[in-house]
Simulated scan of single mutants.
Amino acid sequence: MSKKITVEQDIQHPETRLYRVVASRIEALIREEQIGQGSRLPPERELAARLSVSRASLREALIALELGGLVEVRGGSGVYVSAALAVPAAVEAGPGPFEVLAARRLIESEICAIAARVATDSAKDAILKAVLDMEQNHDNYDSNELADREFHMSIARATGNSALAGSVAHLWDQRGNLWHRLKEHFQTEQLRKETLNDHRRILEAIVARDPAGARSAMRGHLERVTRTFSRG
């Protein structure tokens, strides 16, 4: 029977990132069970159960280990050990992608509601331009990413509150290598189309001066992204 490994007791400091603890536990599991280079790890569902963590935290940990060169995530196949575990892998500091998404759901949803109440015509034009830029750069990853960021920043600037705009900029700047690798693995063409549709709905609610609708549209958008990346 597989041994169940818990991680909660390893979190002794409030700033310790759960996914970093999980990454260390996966390394320990590979050593203890002598899973050799080129061998496949147990399926995500099984690993999450054995470690008593969510699929989201597990996925962040696996991506961190992949960035450290210790595992390889193969879409549709599984996760494979790609290097000998001589030393613990270096794991990216800072909040994980799902922490950032959770913060964005709270903050950007309310910002969106404020923007729906106070946005000027020129502010709405800026949001529309970002949507059009995303459409025009659908197949260009870098340009599409910049337009996506500008969409969310334009909404924040539409509130007229520079502190809120700064908060959104900070959250977007927290999207490090873990985020981009996660997106690389699990973003699909369907998700990209749905993101664009979400952005149109958000814009429509802001233009209609519908704070409740704008809040709901933004929250729904970020919840869907979270579900896709944690379960995809």
Rank of each mutant, 00 (worst) to 15 (best):
L191V: 06
A48M: 15
E204F: 14
S52M: 10
M153H: 14
T188C: 12
I11M: 15
S54W: 12
V53D: 08
E33N: 06
S54Q: 08
Q136K: 00
P97Q: 01
A116R: 00
A123G: 05
P42F: 15
S122Y: 07
P211K: 06
E223L: 08
V53F: 12
V118R: 03
A64R: 08
M218Q: 11
L41F: 11
Y141D: 03
T195A: 14
T195C: 13
D210F: 13
M218P: 00
A158N: 12
L65D: 06
R20L: 02
S57P: 01
A84M: 13
A123Q: 08
T226R: 05
R192L: 15
E92W: 01
L65P: 09
S162H: 11
R40Y: 10
I11A: 13
H170A: 06
G75E: 09
R55W: 03
V53K: 00
S143Y: 10
F151S: 11
N144K: 00
Q136N: 02
R25T: 01
E204V: 05
L47S: 13
Q174H: 07
S162D: 14
L164W: 11
E8G: 05
R59M: 11
Y19Q: 09
V21P: 04
H170M: 06
R215L: 14
V22I: 10
R231H: 15
W172P: 00
A119N: 03
W179A: 03
T188D: 10
S154W: 12
I63T: 09
E72M: 10
T228A: 15
V225P: 04
R25P: 00
R104C: 05
H180Q: 09
E145N: 00
R40I: 15
A169W: 09
Q37A: 06
N161F: 13
T226D: 13
L106R: 01
R25C: 04
Q136L: 01
I114A: 08
R20H: 04
S167D: 12
V225R: 04
E46H: 14
A84R: 00
S162G: 04
P97W: 04
E150T: 08
H152T: 11
Y80G: 10
A147H: 09
R105K: 06
R59T: 08
G78Y: 09
I30S: 03
A83P: 05
G232I: 12
L18C: 10
Y80I: 09
A116W: 08
H13T: 11
T195P: 02
G38L: 11
S24K: 14
D210I: 03
H138D: 05
E135Q: 11
L222S: 00
A212W: 03
M218L: 07
H152V: 07
S122K: 07
A147C: 09
E15P: 00
V87K: 04
S162V: 12
S230I: 03
N177P: 05
A102G: 05
Q187T: 13
A214Y: 13
S24L: 12
T188H: 13
D173Q: 07
G94W: 03
K183F: 05
S2N: 13
E150C: 07
D133F: 02
A84I: 10
G68K: 08
R157N: 02
N177L: 10
A83H: 12
R149H: 09
E33R: 11
D198S: 14
F151W: 14
E27N: 02
A169P: 00
M153L: 15
L29I: 03
I30T: 03
V73Y: 10
R181A: 14
